[in-house]
Nucleic acid binder design. Structure first.
Lengths: 238, 238
DNA sequence: CCAGCCGAAATTGTATGCAATCCAGGCGGG
DNA sequence: CCCGCCTGGATTGCATACAATTTCGGCTGG
């Protein structure tokens, strides 16, 4: 498992190593470097980060709360492997929450925020042009960051945390059920949303966001597993 | 539907003691037996439940994720003491999420669900008539359970978890900023919502829920702390 | 050849020990 | 008399040791 391929030459803060490991693992999961179902051995992760299992367990527990890993008693932690039903719930939740966030963001967006959005859009464009798995990962990441930036602008820390969880889980779902290898988020959709925000049209931004989510979900292949319980059971192993 | 199990006389399962402690502490916080700001000493809690600090720490970390306790590095865990701004965010989140939940619930509510609601309403009525702090606590609890039952009926596990967090934090907020000693939730509001659900009128249920939330928040005294930073700082101590 | 059992190795769950940090109270200087 | 420093106790952060459980290999019997 190639967890540490980046350099931690200067750990930004030596404080709270558990949080650092948590974020590192989360990035790896969201970027799909760690496939759903992958076992996260406590001792192994501890060795990689040079900490004791105590710290690793704290990080894994945190990720379990976010729904990114699933822990089974006496069996350990695994990168989450959401079922089609869970996938639908993730997107249903986003459809419920994100339009409201867009309306709130439209109310309090500043020119500086708009500039941040544009910078993000620029990154997305650049990454869309590049090739290779690394660019693809960065693109997925940037795409999610757009939605997080939106929640950040809205100014509600609780909703921001909910969105962090939903965006991360969406990435897992797309990794599992994405039909096309295409971008997880249409770049044009994002640009249109920013335009609506800049115009202060919260309702339009909300509507665009809603159809954007529909667009993402439409690219998934969430066939019912009814009657396929055995196959599903086999798939959800590892 | 196992929303909250109140009897801890006989722990149903000895498995996962951390989860048991977590739920016990959460009940105590939501019922306001543990005041906001109370320090939760690891060793003390451990002695109380006859477990090691390891298990207590896991429970406290879980509660910290729910926003019910706040941990400060090298200082320990404290029952959360939400600021007026956090309080507003809690209710803003509920206003955003709960109407959608009501619509979803109206779509898939069953007669059995309605019966559960009615039973809950009956409990609330009974508790409203009783006196004493114990009845008051039970009433607060039942009031929150109504909203959780609604989320449960809606059938989205993710939103249910979000609502669990929001309802619990609402209880903290009401404990801190509630103006009247009156019921935290108007009982009639709940009854009207159930009627709308039974009629399959999701929009009406959503609208009733929205005004219900407004009603709850209107009873709070969330004066701005701008210019009162010092007093606020003093208050948020313990 | 295969199913089922059994024991060793691996892995997780929990308790405990130790170092680091924080807090309270006393003491000395101003 | 008040302010700042310092030291002792208490508490948390982390590592490690041990117990409980699972997993996986081989072995035996059919």
């Amino acid at each position: 498992m190639t967890l540490v391929d980046q350099t931690f030459a200067v750990p930004p803060v030596a404080e709270d190593r558990a949080a650092m490991i948590r974020e590192y693992l989360r990035d790896a999961i969201v970027d799909r470097r760690l496939a759903p179902g992958t076992k996260l051995n406590e001792a192994e992760v501890g060795t990689l980060f040079d900490v004791s299992r105590t710290v690793v367990r704290a990080a894994l527990q945190a990720l379990a709360f976010e729904g990114l890993v699933k822990t089974e008693r006496n069996r350990g932690a695994f990168v989450a492997n959401p079922s089609p039903d869970e996938a639908r719930q993730v997107f249903a939740s986003r459809r419920l929450i994100e339009p409201g966030i867009a309306r709130a963001a439209a109310e309090c967006v500043t020119p500086k925020d708009i500039a941040s959005f544009r910078a993000r859009l620029h990154d997305e464009s650049r990454l869309l042009g590049e090739r290779g798995p690394s660019a693809r990962r960065a693109e997925i990441h940037a795409s999610g960051d757009f939605h997080l930036l939106l929640a950040n602008v809205a100014g509600n820390a609780i909703l921001l945390r909910f969105m962090e969880e939903l965006v991360a889980r969406s990435s897992l779902v797309i990794a599992l059920y994405g039909r096309s290898g295409a971008s997880s988020c249409g770049h044009n959709d994002h640009a249109n949303i920013v335009n609506a925000l800049e115009a202060g049209d919260g309702d339009k931004a909300a509507q665009l966001l809603l159809s954007h989510i529909d667009h993402i979900e439409a690219d998934l292949d969430l066939r019912s597993t009814t009657g396929l319980a055995l196959a599903e059971a086999l798939n959800t192993q590892d």
